[in-house]
Nucleic acid binder design. Structure first.
Length: 769
DNA sequence: GTAAAGACTTAGCAAACTCTGT
DNA sequence: ACAGAGTTTGCTAAGTCTTTAC
């Protein structure tokens, strides 16, 4: 533990949800929002002005400090510039959003990425590797050669063609899978003969992309074909009997306004429809959808009554639950059909699952935490908003009848199949592949490899940043202290965010003075830093950590002459930090530390908690505990399930019952024993054995329940899923399962097994992260 | 060099589904 | 068959980091 920090000593922080209780610059922000709500479109200026007043104050301080500490400071200037630019930025964004929703004559669009060498060229010489892919310098494995020889782009052929080579490759795979070797060929043949297509399909499912070479030229695919996205169902007007009331009087709304009204009605039960910002944003955007007549009438949201609509939807969903089996089945089948048609694409030679093939339906935006844009209308996305990405030589997806895509491009430097610009933040949304796909899996694998490389040099880096705490230069001290936090506490990098555009959350580099408190002495510890801030998704991070004296002194220095709302690390941002990291190790960025520390913690914890004699449930509990240690490190929280208390009680009742049962059975056992002693006959012996077994069985059941209770209690506010899915090298878990003979299903469910197929296949029991 | 845009990963919540005990 | 609990999946917001534009 001491000075050097092996990560057995990660800091447990007892954070809690903070969105509402955590008042965070509330006054300041509230004012801002109200201000803005009045005049979003035109009057950004004023808002910005308001901000700059507030900033000026702190900027003066910055300058003072700058004089104090040596510096080359340009950061203040940046801020000024930043502010200026904000206005333009706003305007541009709005223009962009608008334009993306207006049918405008298509720009001649030639994106520079599309290279002639791409699919088309390859297509013309499918037998040969023509140099553009895979890149010439890499050696091919024999497997890859097969692949290339049977190069085939058209999906139909992929499916129907049964050439020799395909068979041959299949055999190879089978042989690898089954070591005993004699059978496979026959088995495969049989399968093929009897099941034809199915066997082919299975092969597809089992495709081991991780045994193939990876592209090195930056292209993400050679061939891509898909059917385009599925659009949200069109709006169905309310039946006439369902009325909307304004000011007590029924009022028939035109479809566009009515639709938006239903969005609000559907949310009526949510607390946030009572929030000021939400209501203001909503009304404003709603009015945009109204006819001028409606607009002149409806001016006050408080006079609107949506309750009939709301009831209607409740009844509707109730009715859906009550549907007959058949009806439900029909819906299920329809969904399945849609999935089959639109849920897959062909990428290179393989059919791959798409992650999100449905376009997000229109509705009201609800950001997380205290979001300034909550309640705004998320517009319906139409075909003319969509950019399609696919191979030139693929069958292009057809837009719905009577519509056009915004653009069809052929960019194999990116992985997405379709994209559109969303109207709330003006950001781009994508349709991409499922985590089980090659393209995602490769990246994931690579991520863990980078983290493993960090493992090899983390000692060196730690020595260096500790050294840097003593630097003469402020920027270096800040950088090194920030890095220490990132490493030790697994904080996120903390990019700058535009004020007023999103909830006020921070990460390491964007921490402000108000987010930490220094305690030279606290209880029996020295140099304690208390962190209290809202991180990603407005999840509160609360933690107290004793730090080394040098870090403490540095923090004191950083805090000098600053206001609460000033940046703690005023000489640092993520780009500076990452540039530095990049120099220390190829591919190193701030988030690699999170991956590394999460994975290494799991591995260590698993070792530590290992107890060979434990039963299976006890082992699984140990795993969950190790997983939990990571979740706590990464601050992955969840709202305690609504039914938590009750379900805990139920479990306790079960345990009590089981305990009673146990003592009863024990009594029986005792009786059986004395019976047997007395009579010594076969019958009593049999009974004795039976009772003995019963006791054992019930003991085991009890133990299981107790373990379950412990596990659940400890998990109340912790969410294990996020770390399991994103931070823990799956090979660690797979290896652990193999080592202790735990069925992998105890650790990973089906989806997770699909995502981690590569790890399942390649990790042996001795795998070391 | 810097800001903005773009691409992609990470995140928690809630609806949908499944399982279990009655 | 059913309710209720538990688990999985879908959804999409919110981050990080890279690339592009100026």
């Amino acid at each position: 533990m001491s000075g050097d920090h092996g990560h057995g000593d990660f800091q447990v922080n007892s954070g809690s949800k903070g969105s509402d209780s955590h008042k965070h610059k509330d006054k300041h922000k509230d004012k801002e929002h109200r201000h803005k709500d009045h005049k979003r479109d035109k009057e950004r200026e004023k808002l910005k002005h308001g901000n700059s007043e507030h900033k000026d104050h702190s900027e003066k301080k910055h300058k003072e400090k700058e004089k104090l500490k040596h510096s080359n400071g340009s950061s203040d200037k940046h801020r000024e510039k930043h502010k200026e630019k904000d206005k333009d930025k706003e305007k541009r964004r709005e223009e962009k959003i608008k334009s993306s929703h207006v049918d405008k004559p298509k720009k001649e669009k030639e994106n520079g990425y599309v290279r002639d060498t791409s699919p088309a060229a390859i297509k013309s010489e499918p037998e040969e590797d023509n140099g553009s892919y895979p890149s010439p310098q890499h050696n091919k494995t024999s497997k890859r050669e097969h692949d290339d020889e049977e190069f085939e782009y058209k999906p139909k052929k992929v499916k129907t063609e049964h050439d020799k080579k395909a068979k041959k490759r299949k055999h190879e795979y089978e042989e690898e899978e089954e070591e005993e070797d004699i059978k496979p060929k026959k088995k495969t043949k049989d399968k093929k003969v009897t099941e034809g297509k199915k066997a082919k399909k299975e092969e597809e499912e089992k495709w081991k992309w991780w045994e193939e070479e990876r592209s090195t030229d930056g292209s993400k695919w050679r061939f891509l074909e898909h059917k385009g996205p599925v659009f949200a169902a069109p709006y169905e007007p309310m039946p006439d009997k369902v009325k909307f009331y304004y000011d007590g009087k029924p009022m028939k709304l035109n479809a566009p306004a009515e639709e938006v009204a239903t969005f609000f009605a559907k949310m009526l039960d949510h607390e946030y429809t009572t929030k000021d910002i939400f209501r203001k944003n909503f009304l404003k955007d709603w009015r945009k959808e109204m006819t001028s007549e409606e607009k002149s009438k409806i001016t006050d949201l408080n006079k609107c009554k949506f309750s009939e609509m709301s009831e209607f939807f409740k009844a509707q969903s109730e009715a859906r639950k009550q549907m007959s089996k058949q009806e439900k089945l029909k819906i299920k089948e329809e969904n399945e059909r849609l999935l089959q048609e639109y849920g897959f694409c062909i990428m290179d030679n393989h059919k791959e699952k798409i992650g999100n093939f449905r376009i997000e339906p229109p509705g009201l935006f609800r950001g997380r935490g205290d979001h300034p844009k909550m309640g705004r209308l998320k517009l319906r996305i139409r075909p003319q908003d969509i950019i399609i990405n696919c191979s030139k030589d693929s069958k292009h997806p057809k837009p719905p009848p009577g519509t056009k895509w915004k653009e069809v491009r052929h960019d194999n430097k990116v992985t997405w199949l379709a994209s559109w610009t969303e109207n709330i933040q003006g950001s781009i949304k994508y349709i991409m592949l499922n985590p089980s796909s090659r393209i995602k899996g490769e990246k994931d694998w690579q991520k863990y490899e980078t983290a493993r490389r960090l493992k090899k040099c983390v000692g060196r880096l730690r020595t260096q940043y500790r050294d840097d705490w003593k630097s003469k230069e402020m920027r270096i001290r800040q950088r090194s202290v920030a890095l220490y936090f990132i490493d030790k506490l697994a904080l996120r990098a903390g990019n700058e965010k535009e004020e007023g555009e999103t909830a006020d959350t921070v990460g390491c580099c964007s921490l402000r003075v108000e987010h930490i408190k220094l305690y030279p002495k606290m209880d029996d510890q020295e140099y304690v830093v208390e962190f209290d801030f809202l991180g990603k998704d407005s999840i509160r991070y609360y933690n107290k950590m004793p730090v080394e004296k040098r870090v403490f002194k540095n923090l004191q220095l950083f805090l000098e002459n600053k206001q609460p709302e000033d940046d703690l690390f005023d000489r640092l941002n993520t780009s500076i930090l990452n540039k530095h990291l990049q120099e220390l190790m190829d591919g190193l960025t701030a988030k690699v530390f999170r991956t590394y520390n999460a994975s290494i913690t799991l591995q260590q914890q698993l070792k530590e908690l290992a107890c060979p004699d434990d039963s299976l449930p006890a082992k699984v509990l140990s795993y969950n505990r190790a997983n939990r240690a990571v979740a706590i490190l990464c601050n992955h929280q969840r709202a305690p399930p609504k039914t938590f208390e009750k379900s805990m009680q139920n479990l306790q009742t079960k345990i009590d019952e089981k305990q009673n049962q146990l003592s009863a059975v024990r009594k029986h056992l005792k009786a059986a024993k004395s019976d047997h002693k007395a009579s010594h006959d076969d019958k009593s012996k049999k009974i004795l054995e039976m009772k003995r077994k019963a006791v054992e069985r019930i003991e085991e059941q009890l133990m299981k329940l107790q373990v379950q209770a412990t596990d659940r209690e400890e998990n109340k506010q912790i969410s294990l899923g996020t770390s399991k899915l994103n931070y823990l090298d799956p090979r660690i878990s797979v290896a652990w399962c193999k080592k202790w003979d735990i069925p992998i299903e105890k650790i990973y469910n089906k989806t997770q097994r699909e995502k981690f197929a590569w790890a399942l296949d390649m990790a042996e029991k001795d795998y070391e992260f």
